[in-house]
Design a protein around this nucleic acid. Structure first.
Lengths: 95, 95
DNA sequence: GAGCCCTGTTACGTTATAGGTTACAATTCA
DNA sequence: TGAATTGTAACCTATAACGTAACAGGGCTC
């Protein structure tokens, strides 16, 4: 179970990939084969990392697509867990 | 890196949770607080497991929400990886 | 056979999100 | 000053996760 708020994957992408390489958002978007707006949205936490985007990132930065998508899942799941007690779900047992 | 086609999470849900308990899809849907159609779609591989659904499953079956969402991620990622060579992405390196 | 339950599925709707293009404003820098 | 960079807003499309209502078929039981 996750205990602390995981960072948005876009944050990690910016700090660990874009900034260290010293490349512009514009050039990174070109390399990724996506629009500058899409990358900007991700970097600023306005959009998530889709499965296809995870593959793109893995190619461009020679990383693991799993790590990117897992980061996104952890992030999404943490948000969902915040509303766990609002869900009307009952324990299920044998009939 | 995933090497083999992961099963659809709905398959796992059916075989490891619904069938062993001997409960009907209708009753399981009621317990989960979702419509029978939604559960049916998941069980038959027509829909994925959303973050919120992962939390519902974790409550109803006393399991880990992470495991459900991770299964879905693995499944989605495998699909995306099948088109890895169709993406126009270039390696990114220091400017 | 008649009735009932369970199931998958179709049709219709809403809502959210990823992605695109275009354009604008603000900033930085040569 | 002029060019580059960036975030963002407006507008579009496609996909997907939900819901309800309705239907058809299979199975079970009086």
């Amino acid at each position: 179970m996750l205990m602390h708020n995981p960072p948005h994957p876009g944050e990690v992408l910016k700090e660990l990939c874009i900034e260290p390489l010293g490349i512009t958002v514009t050039d990174a978007a070109k390399g990724l084969g996506i629009s500058r707006k899409t990358l900007s949205s991700i970097l600023n936490g306005k959009a998530g990392i889709s499965p296809e985007m995870a593959v793109r990132l893995s190619i461009a930065f020679n990383t693991s697509s799993e790590s990117w998508l897992n980061q996104q899942s952890q992030y999404d799941l943490w948000q969902a867990e915040q509303h766990r007690n609002e869900l009307h779900v009952t324990q299920l047992s044998a009939a």
